[in-house]
Design a protein around this nucleic acid. Structure first.
Lengths: 251, 251
DNA sequence: CTGCGCAAAAGGTATGACAAATATTGGTTA
DNA sequence: TAACCAATATTTGTCATACCTTTTGCGCAG
């Protein structure tokens, strides 16, 4: 049926099969990055299907960022090398989705975050460079401002923790933290941070930056652990409040 | 243009826009799980586009496991609740992809894995149940067998570490570990494990299980740390060997 | 009452045409 | 000769329509 010697006795959607074949070829390296695939017409001919079917398969791959398409001559479909940011964004989306569908409990997320962030704090203290410190200090200052809105505070918090994991110099850890940082946002957005709490969080952040700056992993880890504990309590509190206030808001 | 009041002056692919609108609606909860979307024809009418365009959009969502389609009268397109396993598989695929494209260094992966697995060992010791111990012991026994093949040994190793993270009782951590465990497989597959090395790894595993069984987090963590150190050295060794043996195998 | 088969509904595939975008090419002009 | 502009060719994007395949459910017959 297709370009390789596959049996083709399964009754799964043709477009899906083709997408899986091409996807496997990309992941296994048989199709190299930036390589141009044949035109849709040519692919349709090779696989023995029609062009819309090929297009559906390519769209599946495009949704996974495995390929991208350009129009015009010298256009076509190209094997894409997804950047860590692109895949990280996808990962963050999934993370948010699973959280919003209730697959993860608040406690699980808080625990995992606490553990991961402790690692980040320790490694950041060992490997940080001046650029990371500058970002963290800038965010710290923003968080100290009394005028900052809730949503800006949350955004600054995200940037702070991203800078921290960047400072570890471990891009794989950075990749994982996309999921972790995003997973706690729905919970964070439920809270309306009062001035007191913002200052408390900023104080924790300051201690973390202090430790990282002095390359004191112990101090940074300790401050992070206390921050995590503080946040876990706040989340639980907000969760309780929400449960009592609106027991079944969407049943 | 679309069902909500969007400007529609962008020149992005219609199918992509529709997919993003529907995807956002699902993630934000405006479309509930198991809810049935209108038929493709009806969607085409509502969005003012043709059916193939709608289909391309739906295929993008299907690739992200956000929807699924069934044929027949009571068929149609339904909002899907992706399971942790499904998303974990996707995550593992991405992880493999980024590794094979060289986005992550071997050292980064090894370091991240070591840190994460230490956490798993500690939490597993605290929360393990008998079922997890049974699985780990079964895999341990398989790994002790002299007849087991390299690929079976690797597969058993994966199952062992999955069981370990399952034992933590933290499903979010389990989700993250899909990426970690899968990321080291390409490196592991490069190695042809000799009998000595298998026995060494099995011995580490045994000490981990021992610690977890006795709910001794310290012991389990220590054994895991030593295993990680051992593996990192092996990977580095194999990497060196490969570099010297075949400097540019596919250039 | 049970079982068989047919029909309707919905997604899956095919065909063919046109629209839009864009790199290339060739001509025209300074 | 060089620079710029326009025509053109190529490839993806979109549309319209028809038909096929699968699945459910209903009706008819045993």
């Amino acid at each position: 049926m297709n370009n390789l010697g596959f049996p083709a006795l399964v009754t799964e959607s043709l477009a899906k099969q083709i997408a899986e074949n091409l996807g496997a070829a990309i992941i296994e390296g048989r199709l190299k990055v930036n390589e141009r695939l044949p035109t849709e017409e040519e692919l349709a001919r090779q696989f023995g299907v029609s062009r819309p079917t090929i297009r559906e398969a390519l769209k599946r791959l495009a949704a996974q960022k495995l390929v991208l398409s350009r129009r015009g001559p010298s256009g076509g479909t190209f094997v894409n090398k997804p950047s860590i940011e692109e895949v990280g964004f996808t990962l963050a989306t999934y993370s948010t989705l699973l959280v919003s569908m209730g697959e993860f409990g608040l406690g699980e997320i808080a625990q995992a975050r606490a553990e991961l962030e402790r690692i980040c704090a320790r490694l950041a203290a060992a490997n940080r460079e001046d650029g990371h410190l500058a970002i963290m200090n800038a965010e710290l200052q923003a968080q100290r401002s009394a005028a900052i809105s809730d949503v800006d505070f949350c955004a600054s918090d995200v940037r702070f923790h991203r800078a921290l994991v960047d400072a570890t110099g471990n891009s794989f850890l950075r990749f994982l933290m996309y999921a972790v940082i995003e997973a706690v946002q729905p919970a964070a957005n439920l809270l309306s941070w009062r001035f007191r709490e913002r200052q408390a969080i900023a104080a924790f952040h300051e201690r973390i930056v202090e430790g990282v700056t002095r390359r004191d992993g112990e101090a940074a880890t300790a401050a992070m652990a206390q921050l995590a504990e503080y946040l876990a309590a706040k989340y639980e509190e907000a969760h309780e409040w929400r449960r009592n206030k609106a027991p079944e808001p969407q049943a």
